[in-house]
Design a protein around this nucleic acid. Structure first.
Lengths: 197, 197
DNA sequence: CGGTATCCGTAACAGATGTTACCGTAACGC
DNA sequence: GCGTTACGGTAACATCTGTTACGGATACCG
């Protein structure tokens, strides 16, 4: 880590180190020292950037949300139809390559940590609420004639399915290859009448 | 805890204590001392029953699977039709009351722990495989004319949806009440052509 | 009733963990 | 060039963790 202080960049680097430790070693080994080692610094820098360990985790959790939000918005912006946008956004929630698999592992780690940290679970709930609203908007766009209740129910069904599939695949990538997950997604979109074409 | 040794019963009581700590305090506070306190004994008994902490977690994980397998089989046995059996089994995977919510919290805790424990993840994969096979059998029974690929895909979609919904509800019960989850389940069964009647 | 084996609580141990205090050092203003 | 400031590494701390060793008590058996 460089000599001169770029606090935001350091905070981000430390948050990425949190993800890395979470993905490779799991929540139980997510210690300040492990994060410092992954970031290539010492615990001194970590504790100068963040008042305590929980604040570090919270920052990493929020940065994770921000990052995935940006990725999702890019996908949404480059889609050529509402249904394509819906599928693209759902697809990126699956665990279909190395990056998304470790993303899912990290997500599960944060969720498990949130059960022991009131502020972390508040962050989770806020993010989840935004995610739900986004999906409802996408489903509503893909099925303009549906009632709000129908939109909400199907949005929940789709988001829960994607999240569950990502968890399964994260824990057993060989049993849930990318093609299997995509077939599942397409079958669901087809069943709800949200498939393309 | 009684003076006389009933090893299986003690192992089971300790495993229940593991679930309790996992549900109420989270993975990070799942220490041998916390488990002993929840079981009303000391660390001495815990370490005499199990060679080490990881073995304790593995036993608790396996007992959890055994317990839920029994519950599911009872549901399946008392169902009056294949489609009713499918719905009942899926429904018990949701987080719709205090018991199933804490069950989901525990499940997520074990999953997060498994990422740092090779034997724990092997247990998870084995259990998940059995779960998948059960659901494929149930879906196949509910839709006898489907191809094996269709059965497998829809079984995955349904199981992933239930697992994801349970995770959402465990983290935010107020946002995902029982009625919402059941509506989602019924909408999915309807969409796949697996609804009753 | 005495000896023995088993059970389990107590207490200690080494190592790890979050956090704090301290100090060398590099950048920056005068 | 020099003093000041802040950055970050080092090392210490109290506490907690998994695990081990020991000892008292209790049940079992002859």
């Amino acid at each position: 880590m460089s000599r001169t202080a770029d606090r935001p960049a350091q905070g981000e680097a430390l948050s990425r180190a949190v993800w890395e430790v979470l993905a490779e070693q799991g929540l139980e080994r997510l210690t300040v020292r492990a994060v410092a080692a992954a970031a290539g610094c010492t615990t001194g820098l970590v504790m100068h950037r963040f008042p305590n360990r929980r604040a570090l985790l919270r920052h990493a959790r929020e940065l994770l949300h921000e990052t995935s939000r940006r990725r999702v918005e890019a996908l949404e912006a480059s889609a050529t139809s509402p249904r394509e946008a819906l599928r693209a956004v759902l697809r990126q929630g699956l665990a279909i390559d190395e990056e998304t698999i470790s993303g899912s592992v990290v997500w599960i780690g944060f969720l498990a940590a949130a059960f022991a940290d009131d502020e972390l679970i508040e962050i989770h709930r806020g993010n989840n609420r935004l995610w739900r609203e986004r999906l409802e908007r996408l489903v509503g766009g893909a099925a303009p004639n549906w009632s709000p209740e129908r939109v909400s129910t199907v949005a929940l069904a789709l988001s829960a399915m994607v999240e569950g599939a990502a968890a399964f695949a994260a824990a057993d990538p060989a049993a849930y290859p990318a093609a299997t997950q995509e077939r599942m997604l397409d079958a669901a979109l087809e069943a709800y009448g949200l498939a393309n074409g």
